[in-house]
Computed example of a mutant assay.
Amino acid sequence: MANGTAPSAAGAKAALPRPHRSRMRRRSPAFWFLIPAILALAVIGIYPLLLALYNSFHQYKLADLASGTPFIGLDNYIATLTDPSFWGALGRTALFLCLTLPIEVALGLFAALMLHRTALPWMRAAARVSLVIPMATTYAVVGLIGRLIFNRQFGVANYLTGLLGIPPQDWLADPTLAFVSVMIMDIWQWTPFCALIMLAGLAMVPKEAEEAARLETPKWSKILWHLQRPYLLPGLTAILILRSADMLKMFDAVFTMTRGGPGTATEFISIYIQRVGFRLFDQGMASAQAVLLLILTIVLSRLYIRFVYREAA
């Protein structure tokens, strides 16, 4: 009897791993499909971040590679935090963000409300297609368009201001006007993005509740604040996070349009980091500045989530 039960126990033990092996076979195709994305993330995102973090603690000057890359600890960070040029570039970037982002959000909300209230489906579809065009334009092309629009001799900006009796302005040579010109081009490109996100939030509002609110009060401001606002806040959080991160690292459009000038009027923090890294050839200092910029972006994102998204939740 003992001899009869032994083979059955052994057979049961041998059969136990089979479901586990079948589950592994079912999961293995998904794992293999994920490998290219994991490798791309590691090569494009994780490795450069780790390399920048490593360089930020070393003296790494491209013009003096013969002296090696000795470890210098926090010297690059201390030099960055005591550099007036770094704080000047960061201040210009913060001013650009504080002036441009509210305008983009306000204009995007206005466009979304207008499209949401229209009863013509074809007009709404045509507007959505037209809103995608500025977003699909690359940053370098936006900078080139800006150089043409604000050209003193044949730019459209001077033609339009001339209709109002204003004499021609040298937009890209005046520090204030160059800053305003970069703002205008960024607003033109990214207001449609804000509008589409806001329109998606408005589409989530229940139609029955919206119709009942319109019957109760004709004031659109009350409907917006009490009914539509909770549905807009998640999208608004995404806009704030994405646009703030984008403005902190914007380089192509500004560099193509003004080269950071005149003087340092449009030398934002990303352009300053590029100048330190590839014109002064100090990769260690530039890496430390990039790491500090990443920390600032993370802090801003956490603040947006805490004060904007939490209110929506």
Results as ranks from 00 to 15, higher is better:
49 L>F: 15
193 F>I: 07
121 P>Q: 05
158 N>H: 08
76 N>P: 09
9 A>F: 13
60 Y>C: 05
64 D>K: 14
55 N>D: 14
9 A>L: 14
44 I>A: 12
210 E>T: 10
130 S>V: 04
47 Y>R: 00
240 L>I: 03
115 L>E: 03
9 A>D: 11
84 P>E: 12
249 K>P: 03
291 V>M: 12
29 P>V: 08
3 N>F: 14
46 I>K: 00
104 E>Y: 00
292 L>N: 04
211 E>N: 07
191 T>D: 03
12 A>H: 01
306 R>F: 10
283 Q>H: 11
265 A>Y: 03
56 S>D: 04
173 A>I: 08
242 L>C: 07
80 T>D: 08
302 R>D: 15
258 T>A: 12
125 A>N: 13
288 A>H: 08
159 Y>P: 00
90 L>R: 00
202 L>V: 07
98 C>D: 00
89 A>M: 05
78 I>G: 10
235 G>T: 01
265 A>G: 05
179 F>M: 03
195 A>E: 00
17 P>E: 10
49 L>S: 12
28 S>R: 10
21 R>Q: 11
127 A>M: 05
27 R>W: 15
122 W>I: 10
99 L>Q: 05
153 Q>Y: 15
82 T>V: 05
93 T>P: 01
23 R>L: 15
207 K>W: 07
95 L>V: 15
297 T>Q: 13
234 P>W: 04
84 P>C: 11
29 P>F: 12
54 Y>M: 04
180 V>Y: 01
162 G>C: 01
163 L>P: 07
135 M>C: 05
13 K>I: 15
67 S>A: 13
16 L>M: 09
155 G>Y: 06
110 F>D: 01
190 W>I: 02
191 T>F: 05
47 Y>P: 00
307 F>T: 11
295 I>K: 02
262 P>T: 10
155 G>D: 04
253 A>V: 11
133 I>N: 03
100 T>S: 06
66 A>E: 05
178 A>S: 15
183 M>K: 02
286 A>E: 13
71 F>Y: 15
1 M>T: 13
232 L>Q: 06
232 L>S: 03
135 M>S: 03
115 L>G: 02
243 R>C: 04
250 M>Y: 12
24 M>A: 13
125 A>M: 11
43 V>P: 04
151 N>C: 08
235 G>R: 03
5 T>A: 13
106 A>Q: 01
40 A>V: 14
47 Y>F: 12
90 L>T: 13
143 G>L: 06
254 V>A: 01
182 V>L: 06
201 G>M: 02
101 L>E: 01
162 G>R: 05
198 M>S: 08
249 K>G: 12
199 L>S: 05
220 W>Y: 07
25 R>C: 00
70 P>G: 05
122 W>P: 02
148 L>M: 13
40 A>I: 14
226 H>I: 07
171 W>P: 03
69 T>D: 07
197 I>D: 01
202 L>R: 07
192 P>G: 04
272 Y>N: 10
76 N>A: 02
133 I>W: 12
252 D>T: 04
290 A>M: 11
304 Y>R: 01
227 L>C: 04
226 H>C: 06
130 S>Q: 08
104 E>F: 00
309 Y>H: 14
217 T>F: 06
